[in-house]
């Protein structure tokens, strides 16, 4: 891996869209190089928007994003994004699509080799020459992940990358991500709806939420997940954190049966 992990600093980030809709406000967060941070929050609270701000696809209306200590201005080539949808070019095969992610200045031959390597890593060996519409949605999303990985990014931005996968493939891809992250040491921002996914993968879980009279979501809770990866999914301590997170997300603990019986 050529690129070294970069830290991310969010300094008082706020974002209001052109139509006057305030989505994010006062976000303060420091993400260490090599850290894997999961971002949880209700639908529509601005998680995708936050990733776009870090990637430089949008400019925050307040505050500043720092990558590796330097402010993000415009598209930042230290970051690579996997969007909520695969967003593959239908006229290129999977290899051609993944090649789009190659950093500038990689030769044709070595580029092809890198592309082939990462396609195999995400489990798409034998599908390099397939067009996006010839593969399943889950396979397309894995190709999108490979497109980001060939960039060897300092910061990997993942927007619910596994939401469209079937349950088993999702578990496999989570383990793959953990492995890639361990191997490359890349900083990862992972937006997810899946509390278990967050707890399985993240060093810290950040909860975004709104406090109703004030418009815009902000950091409501930051939770440390202090166990080393790879983690056992059946780890009992995780269950406690899980119940806590779910409660904060508005899913209350089931009341024990003894209490309801008179």
């Amino acid at each position: 891996m050529a690129a070294t992990a970069a830290g991310v600093g969010l300094r008082g980030i706020g974002h209001t869209f052109g139509n006057g809709h305030t989505v994010l406000r006062d976000i303060e967060l420091d993400i260490l190089p090599g850290e894997l941070v999961a971002i949880l929050g209700p639908s529509g609270c601005g998680k995708s928007t936050l990733l776009k701000l870090v990637a430089g696809l949008e400019t925050p209306t307040a505050g500043e994003v720092l990558v590796d200590g330097r402010a993000v201005r415009g598209i930042d080539d230290r970051c690579a994004v996997v969007f909520q949808e695969p967003r593959l070019l239908p006229w290129r095969d999977l290899a051609g699509n993944v090649a789009l992610g190659l950093p500038k200045g990689v030769g044709r031959g070595s580029g092809r080799q890198i592309v082939g390597h990462w396609l195999d890593v995400v489990g798409l060996e034998g599908f390099h020459r397939h067009r996006p519409r010839q593969v399943s949605g889950g396979m397309a999303q894995r190709a999108a992940l490979a497109r980001a990985l060939v960039r060897e990014p300092g910061v990997l931005l993942l927007d619910e990358p596994f939401a469209a996968l079937d349950a088993l493939t999702r578990l496999r891809m989570q383990d793959l991500l953990a492995e890639v992250q361990r191997g490359a040491g890349t900083t990862v921002l992972l937006v997810t709806h899946d509390v278990d996914e967050a707890l399985h993968l993240a060093d810290r879980v950040v909860l975004l939420d709104t406090q109703p009279p004030v418009a815009g979501a902000t950091v409501a809770t930051v939770l440390d997940v202090p166990w080393l990866r790879p983690r056992d999914r059946a780890y009992p301590e995780l269950a406690v954190l899980r119940a806590d997170l779910l409660e904060r997300l508005g899913v209350p603990r089931p009341t024990p049966a003894e209490e309801t019986t008179p």
Partner: peptide, 10 residues
Amino acid sequence: HLVEAGRAYG
């Protein structure tokens, strides 16, 4: 969406 993906990849 495709234009944004293209921009994201430089």
